[in-house]
Simulated scan of single mutants.
Amino acid sequence: MQIELSAVHARHPALRPEAPDTLRGLDLRIGAGEAVALIGPSGAGKTSLLQLMGAALPPCQGRLLLDGQDPWRSGAAGLRALRRQLLLAPQTPPLPPRQRVVTAVLAARLPQWSLARSLMSLLRPQEPERALAALEALGLGDKLWERVDRLSGGERQRVGLARALVGEARLWLVDEPLSALDPTRAAEALELLLRTARARGVTLVASLHHVELALRSFTRVIGLREGELMFDRPAAEVSPALLSALYAQHESELLQPLASPEPPVVAPVPLTCR
């Protein structure tokens, strides 16, 4: 899916009227099947930009086109049709705690299923083999029938990524998908996403705190600061000087390490009093 932004401004709904726009004057073009990393300090507008591209946040000025179509001028049916073709994955996946992992992963299949099949899957998961294959690729094959509230933070993030693998979206917008993963898991998960996106011709835009990983894994990197585009360059051309300017007053984020391995979540053991 191709993305085009022309002089786009957007505002977060929670902003006060006197506050500046969250995103300001953005001009971008991302080709179909391209993989792009989005970097910048906290509060740069990375999440808002992903929401904008995902037709979840409307522009207040300028124009957004997805495959040449303006989602906000397509009517309710057209907007729903466009949204069925994309996956917007937040940093913390909204997974109901008592839900089974298999059901959480198969939620990505809902756009392809009828209402009857979707309801049936709540009682008896449909296509569990798809969920299992995605979870195995992410090292979670043994968690298929586990409850979500028994997973660690890193495992929940990987469940969120598994949704991308089982769905049929043409655009993946992934927000900080590695924040709770240790270095080895992060590198493996990112390589899997990139490899799968290339094989399927999926457009991938991922926001990353870990600059070194972004520069190593992506060929194109976009730098965002205070809602404005600082640079849009091939990764090989992103110099230390550009990074220093992008992260000025936020130098600690530039050197932020990947997460340490998490201890496994241990299910509580019931005690019986006699």
Rank of each mutant, 00 (worst) to 15 (best):
L66Y: 04
L88C: 10
L144D: 14
A104G: 09
L57C: 04
E136K: 11
R147Y: 14
L110V: 13
A134E: 08
E136T: 11
L140F: 03
P128S: 09
L79F: 04
A131H: 06
E168D: 15
W113K: 01
P128R: 09
A56D: 11
D70E: 10
T92P: 05
A77R: 13
D70Q: 06
P97L: 10
G167C: 08
R150M: 10
A55I: 01
P111M: 04
L65S: 05
W113Y: 03
A56S: 02
L86P: 09
P71W: 03
A133K: 11
D142V: 09
P59H: 00
E155S: 07
L119F: 02
L110H: 13
A104L: 08
P125Q: 07
L144T: 14
L95H: 12
L151P: 01
A162L: 06
E136C: 06
G139E: 06
Q85G: 13
L132G: 07
A108W: 02
L66P: 06
L165T: 14
D142K: 07
R124N: 04
Q61T: 00
L57V: 03
L115E: 11
V166F: 08
L82H: 06
R73D: 01
R83D: 08
W145S: 07
R117A: 05
R117W: 01
C60M: 00
R156Q: 15
A76H: 08
L79N: 09
L135P: 05
S118D: 03
Q126G: 06
P96C: 02
Q126C: 05
P125L: 11
W72P: 05
P58I: 02
A131F: 01
S114C: 02
K143W: 11
R98V: 04
M120F: 07
G153P: 06
R98S: 15
R163K: 12
L119M: 06
E129W: 09
E146T: 12
L123M: 02
R63M: 02
V166Y: 10
Q61P: 00
R100G: 11
A104H: 06
P125R: 12
P90W: 08
L86R: 09
Q157P: 14
